[in-house]
Design a protein around this nucleic acid. Structure first.
Length: 596
RNA sequence: GGAGCUGUAGUGUAGCGGUUAACAUGCCGGCCUGUCAAGCCGGAGAUCGCGGGUUCAAUUCCCGUCAGCUCCGCCA
């Protein structure tokens, strides 16, 4: 017997046709003399009917069927009588009268319901992921993920990109995230690292003359997890030769517009806003602003400079700033304002100055430190209206931006100001370097292969922090979904950068010699970008976590509840690799010999 | 590494210093020929995450631990 049709695709057009269906039993309704089964496959449900009078034998077999049994049925597509049509089912006008039944497999009662909108511990969903993935909403996610990736491939193919694979076993390079290491058996004592991204290989592909490269690349970073971070994740990795930043941003915009249109049927507005890093920080307090709502940060430093309020003037005197947000229409209670203050302190502020706006103007315990005309000016600058709440942080610029940036998002959510639209933007003009106080050296903001802006190259040695990078981040709804840059393609400049980052010449040659050498053989100017596919798909499908769009994700402690990985290995395996474990003392009973 | 939240039949929840640990759903059995969240009747099912402490008595209070989730650090 062959499956001839899919359950959810059958319509009244096939009326009278004999069909053979195979799938899972969603539900059985046994009325004694007649049994209904909702048969499910990945396309949907259809009702199949067993009539006692048609065949005692088949009917008897049908009585033994339970949920999630896998069955094959043959029968005729029949119309339902008017009263028995089920408008909730796409196949609700028809049903299949069964004249042959085979039970292909039985099933235990599943630990989770195979249906949408279940409210169940994520533990269970992950442990029985194969059942969780049977649920229609998860199947939809798998399908759309497939569609998105297929569209990306089609689009980039038409644009002349070649999909090229790069190694997963590669070498550990300094900078960046913690590497996952893989010991070499053949070269004892040496290790491969799993790639954090195919960065250097894609640059070498440009040296190799491939001009336009892309890859749906699995990347690995051994860092702690978040709702939008997994230790292994998928990037759409791209690189092009003979291009500038604009070229790359343009092609990515086209790509995004194309997949939103083709997969979701949504029109995305473009070109995307380009926001210089400095402006993003001062207006939104973050380098990945959510611009779906207002509540922008205002600077009132000048305005309050000659007030009597020591918290403000003190911060200004030590080189800080006073900045604030008008929480439009917040009309918070005193308790809510106190909670907000507490949150600010948790975020790193020393406190929160606030004014409630009433019909007579600003009201606050700190009113007395300001002259009437100062309050008036403040009102105007902040566009204060009855019912608003003005909040201010006085601190270093860095702290004020950071705290207000977070408060802004918090308020946006609390005040329900965030619209459902998809809001893309580019953040550009990042500083090339920052100074790491802990390590006492300059570190790359993007990565060490990012090219400075041409006219800033001469700043590198005397004023390194002022040099801008030819880098750009793509942000969607306040989530960073990608970043890229124009790369350095000349050995001399790359060596200068590495030196600036604190690498000795020996270290540079040892770690990056292959790249520096490659640059000596006619490397074209090039640049690229990597998009976090899981995050993009999560946002496209309005999922709450990337775990929802990754078939087999890991938990917050980076383990797989389905396979129980990672797991100990036996000593023979370690011996082959010349490895010996030296674990921190901890009463561990019998954790040896598990394997997978 | 740090903080917070959660953990009670298969599942989702309730509960309380002393109970026969409750409800819904699922499961099992019976009845039932038009249901589609089928219905009716009956039944089984819980070492209250784990360990320790306080107490005459702990699922309940305390401490620790494990697991999951969220956030901070970390994530070129």
């Amino acid at each position: 017997m062959k499956k001839t049709h899919s359950c959810g695709t059958l319509t009244a057009d096939q009326m009278g046709e004999k069909v053979s269906l195979m799938g899972w039993v969603q539900r059985r309704r046994d009325h004694g003399g007649i049994i209904f089964i909702d048969l499910r496959d990945r396309t949907g449900l259809i009702q199949v009917v067993f009539d006692q009078e048609k065949s005692k034998e088949i009917f008897h077999l049908a009585e033994s069927i339970r949920n999630e049994y896998v069955v094959a049925v043959e029968g005729e597509i029949s119309p339902r009588s008017q009263e028995t049509i089920n408008p909730k089912l796409t196949t609700g006008e028809i049903e299949v009268f069964v004249d042959s039944l085979t039970i292909l497999n039985s099933s235990k009662t599943p630990p989770i319901y195979i249906e949408n909108d279940i409210d169940v511990d994520e533990n269970l969903r992950l442990k029985y992921r194969y059942l969780d993935l049977r649920r229609p909403e998860m199947q939809e996610k798998l399908f759309l993920r497939h569609k998105i990736i297929k569209n990306i491939r089609d689009f980039l193919d038409l644009e002349g990109f070649w999909e090229i694979e790069t190694p997963v076993l590669t070498r550990s390079t300094p900078e960046g995230a913690r590497d996952y290491l893989v010991p070499s058996r053949v070269k004892s004592g040496s290790f491969f690292a799993l790639p954090q991204s195919p960065q250097l290989f894609k640059q070498l592909l440009m040296v190799a003359g491939t001009e336009k490269y892309f890859q749906i690349a699995r990347c690995f970073r051994d860092e702690d997890l978040r709702a939008d971070r997994q230790p292994e994740f998928t990037q759409l990795d791209m690189e092009m030769s003979f291009v500038n930043s604009e070229d790359i941003m343009n092609i990515v915009e086209k790509l995004i517009v194309d997949i939103f249109k083709k997969v979701l049927g949504k029109e995305v507005k473009y070109p995307f806003l380009r926001l210089p890093y400095r402006e993003a920080m001062s207006r939104f307090g973050t380098d990945k602003p959510d611009t779906r709502f207002g509540l922008e940060i205002q600077d009132i430093s000048k305005l309050v400079a000659d007030s009597e309020f020591k918290v403000f003037t003190g911060a200004l005197a030590s080189g800080g700033v006073v900045r604030g947000i008008n929480a439009k229409g917040a009309s918070f209670s005193r308790k809510e304002v106190d909670d907000l203050t507490e949150l600010s302190i948790k975020l790193g502020a020393k406190g929160l100055a606030w004014f409630m706006v009433g019909p007579e103007g600003l009201k606050s315990p700190i009113n007395k430190f300001f002259k009437t005309e100062q309050l008036e000016e403040l009102s105007q600058k902040m566009n204060a209206e009855d019912g608003d709440l003005l909040i201010f942080v006085a601190d270093s610029q860095k702290v004020a931006e950071e705290v207000l940036g977070r408060l802004r998002v918090h308020l946006g959510e609390k005040l329900n100001l965030i619209s459902e639209e998809d809001n893309f933007l580019w953040v550009t003009d990042f500083p090339l370097l920052s100074f790491d106080d802990g390590e006492k050296r300059y570190v790359s903001n993007h990565h060490p292969f990012t090219s400075p802006v041409e006219e800033d190259i001469n700043l590198l040695e005397e004023e390194p922090l002022s040099a801008r990078a030819q880098a750009y981040d793509l942000v969607l709804n306040g989530v960073e979904i990608g970043g890229g840059s124009i790369r350095i393609h000349r050995r001399e400049l790359q060596e200068r950068l590495l030196k600036l980052l604190g690498f000795t010449q020996e270290e540079s040659y040892e770690k990056f010699g292959f790249l520096l050498q490659a640059f000596e053989y006619g490397t074209p100017p090039h640049g690229g970008i990597a998009l976090g596919l899981d995050r993009l798909i999560m946002l496209m499908l309005k999922a709450r976590s990337i775990r929802e769009v990754i078939p087999f994700p890991k938990t917050a402690s980076a383990s797989c509840l389905l396979t129980d990985a990672p797991a100990p290995v036996n000593t023979e395996q370690l011996d082959e690799l010349f490895l010996r474990l030296e674990l921190p003392e901890k009463e561990d009973d019998e954790s040896e010999e598990k394997g997978c």
